[in-house]
Structures are given as structure tokens and as C-alpha cells.
Amino acid sequence: MPPSQWFEMHVYTSYLRPSLIVIALAVSLVLAGQAKAQTNASQFIGQLGQQAITILQSTSGSLEQREQNFRQILAQNFDVAFIGRFVLGRSWRVATPEQQTDYLALFEDFLVLTYSRRLGGYTGERLAVVDERAAGDRDTVVRTQIDRPGGPPINADWRVRATETGFKIIDVEVAGVSMALTQRSEFASVIGRNGMNGLIEVLRARSSKLSATAARS
């Protein structure tokens, strides 16, 4: 019998005061809802990790093509606009609409490049979900361990939010350090020195760098 039904039956058979029953019922519903959300958040991260690793370790196509596919998956599963605004802090509101558009487009590149480089691309890489916990009202933090041969394992904690369009990642803590908070303080100092256009240029410069080449000089 599902817990909510059990409580309904209890309502009619017990002598508890109605207000207590209402609270108990509400708590049981919240717990049931949360347990479901958490399980799905773990599955979401687990499947995403599996998908990412399958793509990166496929033997067809160049590493660039595989990374491009990986970046596409990241872009689809991160709430890029939310993170982008958070990372900008109060500078978001004073930016012009054109700056906001330029920034968000470049921020997406920056974000997926940062994550793909920190977390992906190694031979024999594996991601395992360790556990999960609720964070705030809406979020779940899924703890994972990424193992790679010939290197220390990476502990990555994914903060996941249930949105209208499904689960979205809104932050990742690598070795206990929040990427969003790190980026926020870095961006604030760039804006302090060179203004919003300076930040946009830094992001453009980073996303413009080319990767390794097979060409001979």
C-alpha cells in the first residue's frame, strides 16, 4: 500500500487531531515526492555519464568530433542561462541586451569547454554514482566518482534541478570546489578591471583558441 493511502485510512480510523493529520499527510507526500525526484536525479547523472563516456571513447571519428558531440550533450543538460546569470551576479542587470546575448552565447562555449576538459577525454574513464542528498527545496546533489587509469580519481558532485524541461545541472563541485562560485569570483574581478566588454573578450578569446593539430609545420 502506498504511504499516502495509508495516511488516508489513518485519518478515518484514528483519534488524532485533524491538524496533526494534515501535517503528517503533507510530510508523507513531500517525502514520497522527494524520494522519487532523488532517484531520478541519480539516474539522470548516471545515464548522462554513461552516454558521455560512450561518446568520448568511441573509436569512430576524430577526438574533436567526439568532443563536439560531448559538448552538445552538456549544453542540452546544463541550465546554461541560469548558471550564466548566476555567475555574472549583479552585473547581469546592468549589461545591455546585446551584451547579455553575446555573453550567454560565449558563456555556453566556456562552460562546456571547461567541463569537457576537466572531466572528459581520457582512455578507460568511468563514472560511478556514489550517493545523493537533497539540497534546498528544489535541488538534489548527486555525488560521483570519476576513475581514470593512470590518474587520481575525481570526486564530482552534481547539483541537479527539476525544471519544466526535465532535469538540468546547475552546478558541479569538483574536489569540493563549486565551479559556479569559482567562476563568479573570477568574472567579478575581470569585470572590475576591464568592464563587461572586457569579460566578453576574455570568453571570446578562450573559446577562439584552437586545439591540437595533426598538421606538420
Partner: peptide, 26 residues
């Protein structure tokens, strides 16, 4: 080193490091 040899991809990346202030003063 590669940029001084005239290698365009290296020139491009060096210029972008100078713009971003990554690993060198902006």
C-alpha cells in the same frame, strides 16, 4: 616559440592568451 617561427595556429592562441590574460599579463 611556435609563433616566433610564424606558425599561425600558435600565433592565434598566443594572441588569445594575451587578450584573456591567461598565463601572461593581459
Amino acid at each position: 616559440a611556435a609563433a616566433e617561427g610564424g606558425y599561425a595556429p600558435a600565433i592565434h592562441n598566443l594572441a588569445n592568451s594575451l587578450i584573456a590574460g591567461d598565463g601572461v599579463a593581459q
